[in-house]
């Protein structure tokens, strides 16, 4: 049967009430709502075969610490699309990440369309405890997803540790995401690895100088089941999904990930003089 018919049957199975006197429902409902977690945008979901594979490990990294908000926005926007919203999401935080990034702010999460009441925030005292907590959460069938928020590339989160997480995730059908704050890409057991860089936001029609819908460039660096790719995405909180952003909508091209190509960076280093010829207009202070 094709996808539409199967999903109709799944819908029916979910809605059918259990018969009185029977402890379990008549038809066992399907294990989860679809095997894939899609972004909601046709291009990227098509490339991924429906979306990110659930019940396995993925990695999302931002190259610099200042981008952690951007990367988290992508991660939480994705996780907000998990349909079983009664299931909680465990967020395990590397203690080294907190001094630089601070703490998740629920008012901001709500504006992304993500319900902060779903989060269980675990703040262990070191990486060893963090890995233990991650293993426990990855093996727990009752939660929807696990996010391991780590700083950089900690030595303890090596290939063995990521394999272990992946195997547990596979058994318990928990989607595990490693969120690297200012990290390099490294070989691991993740099914897909993404690098997130920000893009200038979409220009709002009414208020051209203001900040429009936040836009990111999601680069798929490593894909075990297909090719890599790059997409420009923006999150739409009303639809609770991502949309593709055509290149002309943003005011400026974003710099590429290859750092040698950034021309202006050297000019802004503190030990160099500022560019000549810049004119600043100051209002009279009186």
């Amino acid at each position: 049967m094709n996808i539409l018919e199967r999903s109709a049957l799944e819908q029916l199975a979910r809605n059918m009430p259990s018969l009185p006197g029977m402890a379990t429902p008549f038809i066992t409902p399907p294990p989860e709502d679809g095997a894939r977690l899609g972004f909601g945008a046709a291009d990227i979901d098509g490339h991924l075969g429906g979306g990110l594979m659930r019940g396995t490990l993925h990695e999302v990294r931002c190259a610099q610490t200042r981008g952690i908000g951007i990367a988290t926005g992508l991660v939480l926007g994705l996780l907000a699309r998990l349909e079983r919203s009664d299931r909680r999401i465990v967020w395990v935080s590397d203690p080294a990440a907190e001094p630089e990034a601070g703490c998740l702010y629920p008012d901001g999460l709500v504006q992304l369309g993500f319900d902060p009441a779903r989060l269980i925030v675990v703040t262990p005292k070191d990486m060893k405890d963090a890995l233990w907590a991650g293993d426990q959460a990855a093996g727990c069938e009752g939660i929807a997803a696990l996010v391991m928020h780590v700083r950089g590339n900690p030595g303890k989160l090596d290939l063995t540790a990521t394999r272990r997480l992946m195997l547990r995730a596979r058994e318990s059908r928990v989607t595990v995401l490693i969120l690297r704050q200012g990290g390099e890409g490294e070989p691991g057991a993740a099914a897909t690895r993404w690098e997130v860089t920000p893009l200038p936001s979409l220009t709002h029609e009414a208020f051209r100088e203001g900040i429009g819908r936040p836009t990111v460039m999601a680069r798929l660096e490593r894909n075990r089941s297909g090719r890599n790719g790059v997409w420009r995405l923006a999150f739409d909180p009303e639809r609770k999904g991502f949309i593709h952003v055509p290149e002309s909508s943003t005011a400026q091209e974003a710099p590429t990930a290859d750092r040698l190509d950034l021309p202006a960076a050297s000019g802004k280093r503190p030990d160099r003089p500022a560019e000549m010829g810049q004119v600043m207009a100051f209002e009279r202070a009186s």
């Binding site: 952690i68 908000g69 988290t72 926005g73 939480l76 907190e98 001094p99 990034a101 601070g102 703490c103 998740l104 702010y105 008012d107 901001g108 999460l109 709500v110 504006q111 992304l112 900040i211 936040p214 909180p237 009303e238």
Partner: peptide, 12 residues
């Protein structure tokens, strides 16, 4: 109004 007026991370 759906606008993003609050950040996702708040520094300590």
């Amino acid at each position: 109004d759906g606008a993003a007026t609050r950040p996702i991370f708040l520094l300590n």
